[in-house]
Design a protein around this nucleic acid. Structure first.
Lengths: 227, 227
DNA sequence: GTCTATATGAGGATAGAC
DNA sequence: GTCTATCCTCATATAGAC
């Protein structure tokens, strides 16, 4: 929205609309390609071919590959925030994060969410995917991650018994970290070809039970101290 | 060991020894670089520079970058198998896998183990690190992974109560998957710069408690059915 | 704003002297 | 076996016509 000056009236915004459409085409093409091939694996030539627009146009809309991916992340981040504004406990979060990987729950696990998962691995592992120290994509992702983590912690906090949270104030954050580690770990496995035929739904359930058991332990401790 | 024909006697193996030493230098340089920069990020030029040998020598010892990494994986796999031949329960496995990441336990968490963790992410996620479908490094790793998984399951099986294993025969494998997912997930986080100051030892403990709680559930179910 | 042709640079790999 | 110089491919990015 910060780009392209207001053009003359009378064109009914047609030119602008066409430009916006091109921009979106490029973004959507990049989304698909990035999911399939990752950051390094996605070439600007492929984005150009897949979007149907010539390479020059791609570079007209995005001044570099890095900027293209920053814009892509912003697009996905916005979508994520809308999706996760509602209540969401541990079990649901693990279910979405793990079971969602199998593709069994397609309408709930969007491409945008999937890309953010992918970006987690790109950005968090310097050594992977080519996001070096001073990469703008990496920096943008890390900023977003902090915000998403906060939202996750809020949702988990809401879903726990108030007395447990009061007694163990940093439990929600810790559970969020464990939950993220689990979903990230399964994400890696899900992108393997050697699935070993994992039943992700079952693992999501096991993971949820494991963390819920942990919560029960803390709840018992909180209750025990009160007597 | 399959390379270079027996040379004439009288040289006391000096030439051979020098060649072997060069080979090892290259391998060790590649190990360090791969840990730091990953597969794509490790250039043959860098390996050459870091090992002190010219690029031509690197290509004399290893016919391609892929072959170099296959050899590197084999080196690490051998080391891993030696390390994990002894008994090892869930808690110890998680402790090594998660707490070991912090570098707090340096003598126990070797570079070779670290490289295999890295390779897990390279190889399992096609879209990352550039290990495409028909990459020999990927294929080699997947073969090794199957073997390492078997060893993991054996160790977990040994560490569980016999009656529980008898009642739930695939529980060890499932716990192994969960344990791997957790360690892989934390590996991703550990390689982030944004540690959020995670206390890996504490998380290793929480993860162990969570999985042990799961085992207790199954143990109770097994016991309950018996009465 | 859109498109074609091309510059530039990096990285894997080879040739061939020593 | 070791080393230097060089080739080839491919991906990012730009120039400039339309």
């Amino acid at each position: 929205m910060t780009r392209s000056a207001r053009r003359s009236e009378g064109t009914r915004g047609t030119r602008q609309a066409r430009s916006d459409k091109s921009r979106e085409q490029i973004l959507l093409a990049a989304l698909d390609l990035a999911l399939e091939h990752g950051y390094q694996g996605t070439t600007m030539a492929a984005v150009s071919a897949s979007s149907g627009l010539p390479i020059g146009s791609v570079y007209w809309h995005f001044k570099s590959k890095e900027q293209l991916f920053v814009a892509l992340l912003e697009h996905c981040y916005t979508a994520w925030m809308e999706l996760h504004s509602g209540p969401e406990g541990l079990r649901r979060k693990l279910s979405r994060g793990i079971a969602g990987l199998s593709g069994a729950d397609p309408e709930h696990y969007t491409k945008e969410e999937a890309l953010l998962k992918a970006a987690a691995v790109w950005a968090l592992s310097r050594q992977l995917g080519g996001l070096g120290e001073d990469n703008e994509v990496r920096a943008a992702y890390l900023r977003m991650r902090v915000e998403m983590f906060k939202v996750d912690v809020e949702r988990i906090t809401e879903s726990l018994p108030a007395d447990v949270v009061e007694r163990f104030p940093d439990l929600p954050a810790k559970l969020t970290v464990l939950s993220l580690a689990l979903t990230d770990g399964f994400y890696v496995h899900a992108n393997s070809d050697v699935h070993l035929e994992l039943d992700f739904a079952e693992y999501a359930d096991m993971a949820a039970r494991a963390l819920e058991g942990l919560v029960d332990d803390y709840a018992r401790r909180a209750a025990g101290e009160r007597t």
